[in-house]
Design a protein around this nucleic acid. Structure first.
Lengths: 126, 126, 126, 126
DNA sequence: GTGGTCTAGACCACG
DNA sequence: GTGGTCTAGACCACC
């Protein structure tokens, strides 16, 4: 389900958070789906349950999961996490653009990338 | 010259790297200029010389500085660091766009930001 | 009769206690009325009978219910639970006021809230 | 500095958070003061450093502390935490008042308490 | 020295 | 069986 990179300097729990976040955002983990239990995921990834616990706690705080004690962790419905997520992305987008301007990256190069990665589709994403 | 934010989560040396990088990119520190000595900058910022040493080492590795042993640290010429810099920015740009697509951020919203931050100017940046 | 919120952090039995308490206090469940049996309420709410049992036990301890073995659980008469209830509320009121004073919340702001939530009516509640 | 109550059902770290929060709010711990180190406070309270760590993390998240890795934890300036704090208190005040109204607690009794705990002082708290 | 992370193993409340 | 808390002890980056 998830591959950990022990050479990565970031803490393990953060990697797990990032990976799970992606799975939730892309829709691989649907709303109200039950996540693997703390212990089972810990076994699967060969890490300590505390580490998984921490990752789940972070995801809960970020609005991606909700916890029912004694039952398990569940994925929140999309509308729940989408708002904050969009804001975060827009902020990051602004930052990288500012950086690009400072570096005087040719505008055309950015536009080309933009169109390639985020093609304009009729009736979608608009 | 540089203001440190001790409440920032990132290590001090990283903040210094970032600030100096900006000064070099924006042209405030011109090519082949001699940087302040490790000890003097350490004094000025009230930090451990080791911290400055580390920042300079990082900047050298990133291609912004070159060292002449016994003489000091100098800013590399623009062409030198620009290549790496542009590549970095483009990679970051790609990543954030991918993230935006996954999150299904409306394309128009990104375009609007793009045009505002990076306005099209005739004969420049193209 | 009662809606449970599984995303609530509090244990289920506590939620049930709170809901039933409200129903008793507001008069929806009158004095000496027989409460639904443990098993039937458990069925209705789709929870474990133990959970209902625990909620009833808590309510009995708080003075809202009394049990006649073999007959069922009954709502105590108003005068019975009112004393304890008033005391509890006054204690909570004192605590939150103390907290407000420590935080130096403007007195006027509290007064405004007070008047809005608890309007002075002639001949009532005095 | 702090007395723990092991009979209390709440987790230890939460008790510590509450106690420290009070000390900060009442001004006993002034802004930008350095808190005792994780290890030393753990020793003093005879608990595990992880427990203190958790308490400090919570306080940081709530805006009462900021952390400088390698240096220690510091109290944030008052304006930082005051805003959220006031809001919390007002919400609690509203809740308890609503509860009081449902219980039909005599308005006069509340008013008396109010005046005793939060006396009107000229030129202050208004 | 500091805080941050992680492991191994334990106990508890909840349902 | 589930998540939540806690202990004991360890290693790391940073300054």
């Amino acid at each position: 389900m998830i591959a950990l990179d022990y050479r990565d300097k970031r803490p393990i729990y953060e990697q797990i958070v990032e990976k799970l976040e992606k799975l939730i955002v892309c829709g691989a983990l649907e709303s109200n789906t039950r996540m693997p239990s703390v212990r089972s995921l810990a076994m699967e990834l060969s890490v300590n349950p505390n580490t998984i616990q921490r990752a789940y706690a972070q995801l809960e705080q970020d609005g991606y999961l909700y916890t029912i004690v004694g039952r398990g962790n569940y994925v929140t419905c999309e509308a729940e996490w989408k708002k904050g997520r969009v804001q975060t992305v827009l902020k990051e987008f602004t930052e990288v653009l500012t950086k690009a301007r400072e570096t005087r990256v040719p505008r055309g190069e950015l536009m080309a990338l933009f169109d390639r990665i985020y093609p304009e589709k009729e009736g979608e994403n608009t």
